[in-house]
Design a protein around this nucleic acid. Structure first.
Lengths: 331, 331
DNA sequence: CTGAAAGCGCTTACAG
DNA sequence: CTGAAAGCGCTTACAG
């Protein structure tokens, strides 16, 4: 090694090597590693730069073993919430990664028929919450810190800025000259989709467009259901020149339906999706949400909860990605 | 504890407690734990029963730390293979669990544009292989032990018994009196679907049924594509009273299409799927495959490879699950 | 504010 | 065939 210190067998620097280079003890290195206070600023700096120059990355296994008791974080998926969908998979993967950084371990906790988690962990992450979700009150009573992926007054929560996503997607269509815009979504008892819908409505309102009742199509959050709803609408009498689908999957179904009734996207009808999932949305104009950030912020809030800090919430920004499925309204 | 030995803080027995109860050293316990030979049968038995009575489960973190060098298993997903689908998610989850038991760590290795893995690990699991997959020859040359999920002469492989699944699904329909049976699948350059198709063909052949060219529908492995293919077929002139869809997703699309052209399932048309995925296939007559066993056997074969044993392969049995979407042919 | 030392639960040469 | 002991890379009272 350029600094004359040997690295450990498997090629990675150890805490001991960092300590030697920084001229401190391993205990001190450990303290800065874990952000404990009571380390002199100068010392901390020295350790930090030693870590950097050695590209130090702590050994997970050793940490877990030393934290005699690893913090177990439970992931609770709401009743009826689908687990085997791309969004959830990606969220789960990022969540595991983010928790690992702090030495926490994720466990999926099954939900009982009464809607409560099968058992409790040191802290919990709640996904797929609905109004009056029994888990919220229950965890509050048990004094288990938790973070909600979604929103609920008085709790610690984090979620993508679905409202603004819906707003921006719809504004984009309006800017392109579209005046009649369908919205393909699912049941509105789902926070996420309700928020996207509110964004849709408000964008119309601010443009002075009054939505008709039949502009709202039930796509049941799925490709095929969206296809059937859109196809049926256009086979009847739909004239809309633009469609905002509340998910990329539904956007895909929407596009296929338009194709099958002989309409070209984006020539005849523009389509915007939502999520920007890999493998699915490459060519779609859509609203990107940052799933990694969602997971990272959820973990950050959870740590605050574990430290007993005050509840607060965060909204993860989303971003309109203009690609090939939207165009200016024709003559 | 009933045996008068204290368990460690976090409630789980340690190797030391097992050793004490069995009247041996921790080294010996470790040896039986890792199936090392050179332990007297009687001693081994004593240790085993001590483990059992203490419900001993080794601490992963401690093992990893002690195995100075953890074995890294790379998971390589073939180019163009979809990763965000339920089957793959479930396989991945089981794979991680199974590898963990042996203290191995799974890493997903990206595939380069030329089809080779970005980097090598101690051992690899190949998924989504196609004919002439360059990874196979490459890994053989590099002498990296690997297991293929699929099949390829001269390699170590494991896969579900897709052929028999296709055979059984089709036989089931034939037994119900159906004589004209469609098969909804995707491109046949995919081993899995090709095998299911062969099963379909052979079942017809043994029943003396000669399939027509247009009995094979391209469902592109997806719900929506299956829907469109089936709908188009019946809108034209299809008369088949039964359909074997090569995946549950395609079966769902198939059923929706039949419904939309006014046919009742299973009254007018019977439908069989394949996979039996949770959340998706509750009411479907389908062929269950055991994804957990698939992962477990893949790991077992990989361990053989790591030990330098001869290559061999395994077929994981599948099972026909008769549920509500198939019925005896009418009139 | 910092260091020396014990300890987390396992594995593995090294003796015998 | 088996035990005693060192060591894996960290954390954390305990002194100072």
């Amino acid at each position: 090694m350029s600094n004359g210190l040997a690295k450990s067998a498997n090629g990675r620097a150890t805490i001991g090597e960092v300590a030697r280079l920084a001229g401190v003890s391993t205990g001190t290195v450990s303290r800065v590693l874990n952000n404990r206070n009571g380390v002199h600023a100068r010392t901390r700096q020295a350790v930090l730069s030693a870590m950097q120059s050695l590209e130090y990355r702590p050994d997970q296994a050793a940490r877990e073993l030393s934290f005699r008791q690893t913090t177990k974080v439970g992931l609770s998926v709401g009743l009826g919430s689908r687990r085997l969908i791309p969004f959830f998979m990606l969220f789960l993967e990022h969540l595991i990664t983010e928790l690992q950084i702090d030495g926490y371990r994720l466990e999926e906790i099954p939900t009982r028929k009464d809607g409560l988690p099968e058992r409790l962990t040191d802290a919990m992450i709640l996904h797929g919450a609905h109004d009056d979700d029994p888990r919220i009150h229950y965890l509050q009573k048990q004094k288990i810190p938790f973070v909600l992926v979604g929103h609920c007054e008085g709790t610690r929560w984090v979620m993508p800025d679905d409202y603004n996503g819906g707003l921006e997607a719809t504004r984009h269509l309006i800017r392109l000259g579209h005046k009649e815009i369908l919205h393909v979504s699912g049941l509105m008892n789902n926070q996420t989709f309700h928020d996207r819908y509110r964004g849709f409505q408000d964008a119309l309102k601010e443009a002075g467009i009054k939505p008709k009742r039949d502009w709202l199509l039930d796509g049941d959050f799925a490709t095929l259901a969206a296809y059937r709803a859109v196809r049926k609408a256009y086979e009847k009498d739909a004239k809309a020149s633009a469609i905002f689908a509340a998910s990329d999957e539904m956007a895909l179904g929407t596009i296929a339906a338009l194709e099958d009734v002989g309409l070209k996207v984006p020539l005849d009808v523009s389509v915007v999706g939502f999520d920007d999932l890999p493998e699915i949305s490459e060519k779609l104009t859509t609203v990107r949400q940052d799933i990694q950030a969602l997971a990272a912020r959820a973990v950050a809030l959870l740590k605050e909860g574990l430290r007993g800090e005050a509840v607060r919430h965060e909204l993860i920004p989303v971003q309109l990605m203009v690609r090939g499925t939207t165009a200016r309204k024709r003559g």
